[in-house]
Write a protein that binds this DNA or RNA. Structure first.
Lengths: 205, 205
DNA sequence: TTTTTATTGTTAATTAATTCACAAATAAAA
DNA sequence: TTTTATTTGTGAATTAATTAACAATAAAAA
């Protein structure tokens, strides 16, 4: 977290790391910008620029040292302490994301999931699943700071108020309801209805 | 679909329409750019510019005629024929989206959902839920053109191949696996892992 | 040695998205 | 009537994101 990086660069750095972790770097410890670019289907200049913004240098002939690059990305974008996340109303999708973060190497941990239905006994991937009525107390007790929200629109406003008053720092909002949050909360909205209508528009030329 | 609109404009037009449909336009038939902007927490110039790109004009004092605007947005971004959508592995989130589109007024219809688990008997909101093994034949039989994909990453590559070979036109990819698709397919990817890591970065200053 | 080749790091150029700013228009107030 | 106050429509300015271009470098080939 040295410089103040552009949002898109932060997102790409996360992608670079994930891709590199799946790369056989024990055998091939270096990678060129164009190779990584090819894997991600983006422009190589983009990669060189993003790494430059982190202050990371490669070897003009060997390319980038993958282990060092993975480490540098961690130092740049990862939080210093463990940061806890909760899923509210997130379905199947949550399982895979939880599995990714709840491995030993990540600073983000999925600490809880909340459901609207009556008290579920289930838990998955070591993550407890609570009824929504317990949300506020669990968020506070666990110190959860990030929320992924994907409940039906009729519940969104009410639940978001509870979330906001629980003192979280960031929300990914997947409901198609626009949420108003205080300025100290970082929010990103992904409205599937407008994304589908856009998809429809551009697939009809 | 007159002009070739910028992607972000198409997305916002969809948002404008949804917000206006919830506005009491029978009592208040006109709205000013700054009023709609306030509802959506965006810049009023943005709205005026987007409407201008559609070739839609307002009254310099009364503002925009809401009914006419809703109609114009439909003529601009909606497909001419019904276009069918399928959800693959989408959970709770899908229900609300399906409910929205499967009303009489939308040209997009959620025609099917597919699950990885053994043949489910369920259906929701009049949408049939099939086992994934039926996917290719159903996509073809129903003429489904758009896919929302949200399966666990280990399944993503394989399932996407089937989807692509079924002849769809567009995919919203929520798996954290980057998909390579032929050029004639429009794809938009939303990688929740990198979005969460970005959220983490910006909530830690 | 010298030449060729390939790649980084970075500035410059381009493209896209957003916001500013103001002329034109006209309803309402004076 | 005349003035004041608003709001649209839009060109210009700004900001952000992406891509191109190339000097500097040094390994490998000649």
């Amino acid at each position: 977290m040295l410089a103040n990086l552009p949002p898109n660069t932060v997102e790409r750095l996360s992608l670079y790391r994930r891709r590199l972790l799946n790369f056989p770097f024990e055998e091939k410890p270096f990678i060129h910008s164009h190779q990584l670019a090819h894997l991600l289907k983006i422009n190589p200049a983009h990669i060189r620029r993003d790494l430059m913004l982190m202050g990371f240098s490669g070897d003009v002939h060997k390319g980038y040292d993958i282990k060092k690059l993975i480490k540098k990305i961690g130092q740049t974008i990862d939080c210093k302490q463990i940061q806890k996340v909760a899923f509210v109303g997130v379905g199947d999708l949550g399982r895979a994301v939880a599995a990714y973060f709840n491995n030993a190497d990540s600073r983000l941990k999925i600490a809880a999931t909340f459901r609207l239905t009556e008290e579920p006994k289930t838990q998955y991937a070591d993550v407890h699943c609570y009824n929504i009525s317990k949300m506020k107390s669990i968020i506070r007790k666990e110190g959860i700071e990030l929320i992924v929200l994907a409940v039906p629109p009729s519940f969104a406003k009410e639940i978001s108020k509870t979330i906001i008053s629980s003192g979280v720092k960031g929300i990914l909002n997947f409901t198609s309801v626009h949420l108003e949050v205080p300025k100290h909360i970082y929010i990103e909205e992904y409205d599937m209805i407008s994304k589908l209508e856009k998809l429809s528009y551009f697939t009809n030329k």
